[in-house]
Simulated assay, not measured.
Amino acid sequence: MAGLRVSSDALEAFAVFAEHLNLTRAAKALHISQPSLHSKLATLARELDRPLYQRTGNRLQLTADGERVARFARDHLERLELFLGELRGTPSTRPLVIASGHTGYLYLLGGTIRAMLAERPGSVRPLHTNRQQMRAALLTGRAHLGVFTLHVLPDDLVAVPIATYPQVLLMPEGHRLARKRNLRLADLAGAELIVPPPARPHRINLERALSAAGVPWTVAVEAEGLPMTLDFAALGVGPTVVAGCVQPPPGLVARRVTDLPLITFHAVHRPGALDDPRVADLLARIRSGIPPAARRRVGSSTG
């Protein structure tokens, strides 16, 4: 590979393709024809002497090398834009991208995003993901920072604990358990619970805890995502276990389940990402927006 030269144009084309993983949409975003984009990608793969993407069923997926090239391409374009901005005395127009889920956006990140957009429109962009999608977005450079609860810490990313909350049972004000100040798992015996689908980490961990405590329970309904979970709880379908940062909507109350483990949210980023002062500032702003009580719990629990 000595003497290899790869153009910024080819890297930009691949970065856009990696974001869409669709030739038609990527070509449209680049304002070029699909055959022209395909030619650029083929040339880049040939110059690097390795496949960058593959077809799996009806979907296109990046190879491991493709993820590395996509990450480099995005980093290269951002560094180039930052350099040119410094040279011209103008700020970068490329937004910082945060990958998170419902709970993170609703209860941890909203204030930071609102303030940053008020200061400079377009400076930050949310990317709604699950944990697996967050990891992929960080590894390919689509996102600068992720915020999630992690049940297994990644070995290829940096995870910084930023807030820890107890787990609470959310239920209507008239529910029989609402009279108690705190709950134990045994209090949930016979409950019909609103839970995520079976493969979700929260569902798995909750089932294990209830089973270990010998608590019988049944599924009231399986709900995908926090908004649907809260809607079902407000309808009286059943109680649900959520992180303590979730604010009960009108008509609902939350009671801590004392023998469930604390839940820790992490800020996740690629190694070296904080060398970019914009990303370091974003993390600092997120941490400063966390309630002090939640920050104090960080380090007292593995989450």
Rank of each mutant, 00 (worst) to 15 (best):
A13S: 14
I194W: 03
N205Y: 07
S123D: 00
H175M: 10
L87W: 05
A42I: 11
I263D: 09
T90D: 10
L206C: 04
Y165G: 04
P121L: 10
E67T: 05
A284L: 04
R131P: 03
E67S: 09
S8A: 12
L82K: 08
L139V: 10
L41E: 05
A233S: 13
V160L: 13
L44P: 00
T240M: 01
G238E: 00
S36I: 01
P121S: 08
L108Y: 09
L96M: 08
T63H: 05
F83G: 14
V253C: 10
E12K: 14
T218N: 07
R59I: 13
L153F: 04
E222F: 00
L30R: 08
P166H: 10
T56I: 14
T149H: 12
L4D: 07
T258A: 15
P201Y: 01
I286A: 06
I194R: 11
F83W: 15
R71K: 10
P277A: 12
E192D: 11
A178V: 14
G89L: 04
R295N: 00
R135S: 07
P249D: 10
P121N: 09
L183W: 03
Q61E: 14
L109A: 05
V124S: 02
P95A: 01
C245A: 13
L106I: 06
L87F: 07
H175Q: 05
L262C: 11
V124E: 00
Q54T: 14
S100T: 02
S8P: 13
S33D: 12
K40Q: 08
D187S: 08
H20S: 11
L185E: 09
P196I: 06
L230H: 04
K40T: 05
F72C: 04
A189P: 10
N130I: 07
R120F: 03
I162A: 02
E67G: 08
T258C: 08
H20I: 06
P126R: 04
Q132S: 15
L188S: 02
V195S: 00
I32N: 06
H151A: 12
D281I: 09
S100G: 15
P161F: 07
I286Y: 01
L138N: 02
G238T: 00
Y165R: 11
S7M: 06
P166N: 03
G111V: 05
E86K: 14
L48W: 13
M1P: 13
L206E: 01
D275R: 13
G146H: 01
T103H: 03
V298G: 03
G57K: 05
F17W: 02
E47K: 15
Y105W: 09
D156C: 08
L96G: 02
T149G: 11
L177Q: 02
Q34N: 09
